[in-house]
Computed example of a mutant assay.
Amino acid sequence: MTVITGRPFHVVGAGCSVGKRGGRLVAFKEGLPRASAPLTMISEVLVSGRVQVSTAAMHALLAHDIPLVLLTENGRPLGRLEPPSGAHVDARRAQLALHSDPDARLDLARAAIAGKIRNQHVLLRRRARRASEPEAVWEAARRLSVLETRAANCDSVPEVMGVEGGAAGIYYRAIRTFVDPALEFTRRDRQGRDVVNALTNYCSALLRETVVSGILAAGLDPFVSFLHEPARGRPTLAFDLMEEWRPVLLDARVLVLIGLKSVTTADLEDDGTARPRLTADARARIVERFHARMAAPARGWPEPPSRRSYRDQVRVQCTALRTWILGRSDGYEPFAWR
């Protein structure tokens, strides 16, 4: 069982239950209390998987205006229990107001892209020894470090995106040196027909669902964004928050999967559409590996609590974004990988 107490109260794990004792909410594992927090200190409760919540606990949450968020074991949102005056209303109003503030959008864009570039050069440094051209990878990492500083000091969102584009070119040229030439990966292309691009697209969808779950759990609107332009049917706030996680949870997973040959060109099937798709067996292997990564201890700076997984940390980052939106922090700090 993984439990994070604080403003949000998370309970994750089979065999867990949530109950009320006096003025406290208590998480149990196999009938034994494992964590608790005063109801007055909880902003929301998130339960993942087959967690039992007592009627007394639900009544107490409703009485204290605390939302209860139900998630599947994979982090997909099932629904929310909350009173009509749920606390997320204020957060969403503030979110809409900041979306119309050019300075606020620039602040978030700088943070998101600088964080992404930082994590990109961390990935390159960590894997440089495995590259076919290690010196080229180290040089790419040095150039990305310069661009990280530049992104943090841009004067407009288009300028930020220009820096992001330059960084992407440097980054993916270095990524190519980790990939077997037989896989025919030449560049990142969402319409690419090679297995690396197909694998990246599929892992990106898994990451998006994870981030959307965190956004909903934080009481924010996934369709009101700051860096990306809102578009009908697209959870663009999730795309904003995915930026810092792409090197950590997406690109790193893709490199592991192709390095171990868990997914190969043989796992592509052509269904007559513009691009081939991964077979059902390959998708099953990807899901297993991706969720194993999400359950692994998060490695960041400053170091997260030892029992916090990457899935937990994604939700923590969403809560941090809400804290900034509500004006309770000076700025949003993206996850810094180490």
Score class of each variant (00 low, 15 high):
residue 2 T to K: 12
residue 86 G to Q: 14
residue 284 A to P: 02
residue 243 E to H: 05
residue 222 P to C: 08
residue 265 T to H: 10
residue 233 G to A: 00
residue 308 R to Q: 14
residue 275 R to F: 13
residue 17 S to Y: 04
residue 61 L to N: 03
residue 86 G to I: 02
residue 193 R to E: 01
residue 237 L to F: 13
residue 195 V to E: 01
residue 219 G to N: 06
residue 210 T to A: 15
residue 11 V to R: 04
residue 276 P to S: 04
residue 276 P to K: 14
residue 96 L to S: 13
residue 198 A to D: 07
residue 138 W to I: 08
residue 126 R to P: 07
residue 26 V to Y: 08
residue 86 G to N: 13
residue 213 S to T: 01
residue 127 R to V: 01
residue 69 V to D: 08
residue 251 D to A: 13
residue 274 A to Y: 00
residue 228 H to G: 03
residue 179 V to N: 06
residue 15 G to D: 09
residue 94 A to T: 08
residue 181 P to C: 06
residue 46 L to Y: 00
residue 151 A to D: 05
residue 158 P to I: 10
residue 243 E to Y: 13
residue 273 T to C: 07
residue 104 A to F: 01
residue 289 R to N: 13
residue 321 L to D: 11
residue 308 R to P: 04
residue 196 V to E: 06
residue 123 L to C: 03
residue 246 R to L: 06
residue 253 R to M: 14
residue 308 R to H: 12
residue 54 S to L: 06
residue 241 L to R: 07
residue 269 E to R: 11
residue 107 D to A: 15
residue 7 R to M: 01
residue 67 P to D: 03
residue 154 C to G: 02
residue 88 H to R: 05
residue 132 S to G: 05
residue 256 V to K: 11
residue 40 T to F: 05
residue 104 A to D: 11
residue 184 E to P: 02
residue 193 R to C: 04
residue 183 L to C: 04
residue 235 P to M: 00
residue 210 T to I: 05
residue 67 P to Q: 03
residue 63 A to H: 10
residue 139 E to R: 14
residue 91 A to V: 11
residue 214 G to K: 01
residue 220 L to D: 08
residue 211 V to K: 00
residue 185 F to P: 01
residue 206 L to D: 00
residue 206 L to K: 11
residue 145 S to I: 04
residue 126 R to F: 02
residue 104 A to L: 02
